[in-house]
Design a protein around this nucleic acid. Structure first.
Lengths: 149, 149
DNA sequence: TATTGTTATACTCTATAACTATA
DNA sequence: TATAGTTATAGAGTATAACAATA
């Protein structure tokens, strides 16, 4: 194990990143569950906040297979959160859009997520939070090509 | 939306924490999948690296219901990664332990996780990584009571 | 009675493969 | 033929409720 230390300049950082990701995910799951939703469902709603994607585009944004997107939309539709509209141009394509109920939940859950995640960051003083935001931004910026479509 | 800005000193930070958690989780999932495992399975193996917990203790560490832990152990046992031993003191209790195969996989996947997560942090210079580790440590330290048993 | 663990059941989530309908 | 989407199927993961065995 000591031999790995030389390969890994910061074992604390690796461990911290992993633990932090579980913490954030569990907070997300709680916020979602508070409204009888799941993390994939709130991701779906989040994407639909500023898009009306087709099924393939949606799957790409979520990093899922198209059939998984179909299922996700099926369940969300059953709950009245989203709706399948037809594309004007392509007879095969579909346009996934939020319903009024879906939009309302998006706002409610969104606010709750912000509150709960901000509470995590509340362990830091303002300067620390600002620095953390910058460091994370740098990490995510480097990967913009990978995580975005 | 602008009205939420006053409630949230750092919308960038909240967003960043969420995105970063998805990035880390997807990297974990990839590392796990590379060995036909899942994230819960590698969490299980990670816990068993320095413990031989009973089912309840295991469930508590994972933040799961005891029946979920039963299922997780069932599947891991079917793959030969873990084994149910009997407790010496309590006839009801069980002692979950890794098999040699499980220990081997724990090391292999562990190394791969370290490599891949370190690559994420590689977007930062050494000083940035050190600072990030300290900031994350402060966040996690504040929550030690919550996330640990 | 209380505790440890399992089982039965029911979801959600996900992928692969095969299919339908349009382009 | 190629593309958009669905369906069939299978499996992991999770929870709740009911149960068995031991304390």
């Amino acid at each position: 194990m000591d031999s790995m230390a030389s390969q890994t300049p910061q074992p604390d950082l690796v461990d911290g990143l992993v633990q932090l990701s579980f913490l954030v995910q569990s907070v997300l799951a709680e916020a979602a569950a508070a409204h009888t939703l799941t993390v994939p469902q709130i991701r779906l709603l989040g994407i639909l906040r500023d898009r009306e994607p087709g099924m393939l585009e949606l799957a790409r944004h979520l990093g899922l297979d198209k059939s998984s997107a179909t299922g996700l939309v099926d369940r969300a539709e059953r709950r009245g959160l989203v709706r399948r509209g037809s594309s004007d141009l392509d007879g095969r394509a579909v346009k996934v859009v939020t319903t009024p109920l879906g939009r309302e939940l998006t706002e409610t859950v969104g606010t709750e997520v912000i509150t709960r995640i901000a509470a995590i960051a509340g362990a830091l003083d303002p300067a620390g939070r600002e620095h953390l935001a910058r460091l994370i931004g740098r990490i995510l910026g480097t990967r913009a090509d990978v995580s975005n479509g």
